[in-house]
Amino acid sequence: MRTGKPAHPLVVRVTHWIGAVAMLCMITSGWQIYNASPILPFVFPAWATLGGWLGGALNWHFAAMWVLAGSGLVYLAYGLASGHLRRDIRPAGPRAVWRDLIAALTFRLAHREGHYNAVQRLLYAGVLLVALLTVASGVSIWKPVQFGWITWSLGGYDIARRIHFALMSLIVGFLLVHLALVALVPSTLRSMITGGRIAPPSQEHGS
């Protein structure tokens, strides 16, 4: 049975790409901001940063944050209303994750367009949660007085700043895995642009 529905609904695709560009701006401008007062014994190379100097990077960061928040909110609202989050993103049980992870690592996990396997669900749910926490920790160091309760609950300004950095590192880690998987299954890139078509249910799935 082949349904007419796209594997990736238009809202998901649009918010994905707008969010992707905004996130890239947030990360690279964030690296430039980090370079002004590093918390670890290294700085990011200039070619990987955005903004040219601290003031420019701050302007990029605080402009891109609205784009990221906007696309994120639209995505979450759509995801909740349409059931996309519950159906496709809600993590499966640990056994399913283990099974799909083993299958993926041994190259036996078939990719079926429009179906999210247990590893994907875990990664996507995880990066969404991390992104939300990154926004919260970002707000807490942007407005440590006006949103002092967030700053306080994260252990104070200095710790919140390090948490923000650590969460960014997790997002970058996700991006590396995400891009590697896209490289392994390039058709996913096409369907994330065109929408693709939902593949018929697999016989072997769940056996």
Binding site: C25, W47, L50, G52, L179
Partner: peptide
């Protein structure tokens, strides 16, 4: 592709 995107944002001084 991804590096091209990065250099589009940084290398060519988009903010200039």
């Amino acid at each position: 592709l991804s590096l091209g995107m990065l250099s589009m944002l940084t290398g060519c001084k988009l903010d200039d």
